[in-house]
């Protein structure tokens, strides 16, 4: 029988195929490589394939669009154990990477604060100050900065366009408008702001201008 390289290649792919979960499939706990298939928990723990198909779908990560799941009310995760604890939200978009080779990044505080507390990122990962954070994809890919979550638990780093989502010129216009507004406000505050150290600690609207110079 003549040897056919195509058979070899087909065999190679076939050997990879069976245990690789495909879109719309979730590995069974006993076959996921982290659970002990002979342990007593198998059969008692919920399978991802029982819970996750019922949530809004996605193409990456858990194949769940977690923000959609939250906002449509399909899931209602608690914001705290202590009912007295404040559930802080901030609805403020930050535009980053205005002059790069990729589209600019729109960072939505709202989507992040629906899940996270301010202290999860500020100030040990990001200073709340324009241009103070040298954000880089190199560090992110190393699991730093955004990469603490993205690539580990939040949507993975293959999803470039979810962050790099705004054309540079559009982001530049938005930033210019916000800066003009800020300049006008600080001019109007005038002498008052000069002596008011409190204004220093107000959240800054923008970041990522460092690359312009």
């Amino acid at each position: 029988m003549p040897f056919r390289p195509t058979v070899l290649i087909a065999l190679l792919f076939a050997s990879m195929a069976p245990s690789t979960p495909h879109a719309g499939e979730w590995a069974k706990l006993a076959e996921d490589g982290v659970h002990d298939p002979n342990g007593p928990a198998i059969g008692l723990l919920q399978q991802p394939g029982d819970a996750l198909p019922n949530l809004p779908g996605d193409t990456a990560g858990n194949q769940v669009h977690w923000i959609k799941a939250l906002r449509t009310g399909v899931i209602q995760p608690r914001p705290s154990i202590d009912p007295a604890r404040e559930d802080r939200r901030l609805d403020k978009d930050i535009y980053l990477d205005l002059y790069g080779s990729m589209p600019s990044v729109r960072f939505p505080h709202l989507a992040h604060t629906e899940w996270l507390d301010c202290t999860n990122c500020h100030d040990h990962l990001f200073l709340p100050k324009r241009g103070a954070n040298n954000i880089s994809m190199f560090l992110i890919l190393q699991g730093q900065q955004c990469g603490v979550c993205h690539g580990a638990v939040a949507f993975p780093l293959t999803e470039c366009s979810r962050c790099h989502s705004v054309p540079n010129n559009q982001a530049q216009r938005i930033v210019a408008a916000i800066e003009a507004e800020e300049a006008k406000r600080s001019a109007a505050d005038g002498d008052k702001a000069a002596t008011d150290s409190g204004s220093q600690s107000q959240p800054r609207v923008l970041d990522g201008k460092a690359k312009t110079k």
Partner: peptide, 9 residues
């Protein structure tokens, strides 16, 4: 094929 396919995260 024997590589881990744990659920994301």
């Amino acid at each position: 094929s024997t590589r881990s396919h744990a659920e994301y995260a």
